[in-house]
Computed example of a mutant assay.
Amino acid sequence: MAAMDTISTLLFRPPPSLLVNVMTVVSSVVVAVIGLSEAKGTAHLQYSKFWNTNNSATKSSSPEKFKISSRSGMLLLYAPAALAGAVSFWIFPNEDLRILLLKSALTLHFVKRNFEVLFIHKYSGKMALDSALIISLSYFSSTALMIFAQELSRTLPEPSIDLKFIGIALFLIGIIGNFYHHYILSQTRKKGETGYKIPKGGLFCVVICPHYLFEITVYFGFALISQTIYSLCFAIATAMYLGGRSYATRKWYVSKFEDFPHHIKALVPFVF
């Protein structure tokens, strides 16, 4: 009973939807497990140079997959989620401030990601189509379900402690920090270069994946704006997933660069 009282202080009760409640468990577990697989080098989502850090032999022996350009693949990752956010303004045209803030934050996040794909990032490889489709479905479904869960929660009692404005602050810190470090990454290569370099500037002096750290901040911003169990569980799962990717990323840099500074951590400065 005390645990339920604590939950109701910070979160909405689970909404009256079997779909949302089942997907809260399923999607969170799947994303977290993929993150653990990334860390162990056994992930099968082939969309970056890090996917097989510990499993290069598997790559050489795996069947050839249909691939598309990295730019097209990244647009496929983010465009459906941005569309889901934009369409939600038409599907749920209510005046509730919390859901308006959530829809706006989600839409802005994925519009920003598409902007970066088109105008910021530089690409030199290809992406497996099946991996792009899986990740695209994850982003799309999580965005749609976050908004749907929020809409269902409008009829439930509000949490005693209102965290939505703290969530907005966290979201803004995350999206600005994420964009800034993506920009630094895009400047690592000079025009015409295709090789990889150790990024420098910003928080790259202490962690190799500050852009992931700020993306996690974005998702916890969503969770505090929303204060639903689904958004919180998905934020935790996203942190586990990006933690696994950052661990694999650091391992890749260590394997490729003999002069990689060993004080630089994967994700959290001075800790991990």
Rank of each mutant, 00 (worst) to 15 (best):
Ser70Arg: 01
Ser69Arg: 01
Ser27Gly: 15
Ile99Ala: 01
Arg189Cys: 04
Met74His: 06
Lys65Leu: 13
Ala248Lys: 02
Ser124Trp: 15
Leu106Ser: 06
His181Glu: 12
Asp162Thr: 00
Ser124Lys: 12
Gly73Met: 00
Ser8Glu: 12
Leu97Lys: 09
His182Ser: 11
Tyr180Thr: 09
Tyr247Leu: 12
Val31Trp: 13
Ala144Glu: 09
Ser70Asp: 06
Ser17Asn: 02
Lys265Ser: 04
Lys49Thr: 13
Leu10Ser: 08
Phe220Glu: 09
Val33Thr: 05
Pro93Arg: 13
Phe179Glu: 03
Asn55Ser: 15
Gly174Ile: 08
Ser255Asn: 15
Phe148His: 15
Thr188Lys: 09
Leu19His: 07
Leu11Trp: 12
Asp259Asn: 14
Asn178Thr: 05
Ala239Cys: 10
Ser28Asp: 07
Phe270Gly: 01
Phe179Asp: 03
Asp130Cys: 13
Arg245Ser: 05
Ser131Asn: 15
Thr53Ala: 07
Gln227Arg: 11
Leu133Met: 15
Val33Lys: 05
Leu156Gln: 10
Ala86Gln: 00
Leu145Ser: 07
Tyr47Cys: 10
Leu145Tyr: 00
Leu232Pro: 06
Val111Phe: 15
Met240Ala: 15
Leu137Ile: 03
Pro210Arg: 09
Thr228Met: 02
Ser153His: 10
Phe257Cys: 11
Ser231Phe: 05
Leu163Pro: 00
Phe50Thr: 03
Leu102Cys: 08
Arg13Trp: 05
Ile120Lys: 02
Phe179Lys: 04
Glu116Ile: 04
Ala81Met: 12
Ile198Pro: 00
Gly192His: 06
Ser17Lys: 01
Gly202Ile: 07
Ile68Asn: 04
Ile225Cys: 01
Thr53Phe: 14
Val218His: 14
Phe165Lys: 01
Lys256Thr: 12
Phe115Ala: 08
Cys205Tyr: 03
Ile147Tyr: 10
Cys209Phe: 07
Ile198Gly: 02
Ala128Arg: 03
Leu152Lys: 01
Ile225Ala: 01
Ser141His: 00
Pro14Trp: 00
Leu10Ile: 05
Gln46Gly: 04
Leu19Ser: 10
Ala32Asp: 09
Met240Tyr: 08
Val218Met: 14
Ile173Arg: 11
Gly41Trp: 14
Asp130Tyr: 13
Lys49Leu: 14
Val117Met: 02
Ile264Asn: 04
Leu242Glu: 13
Ser186Phe: 05
Ser60Asp: 15
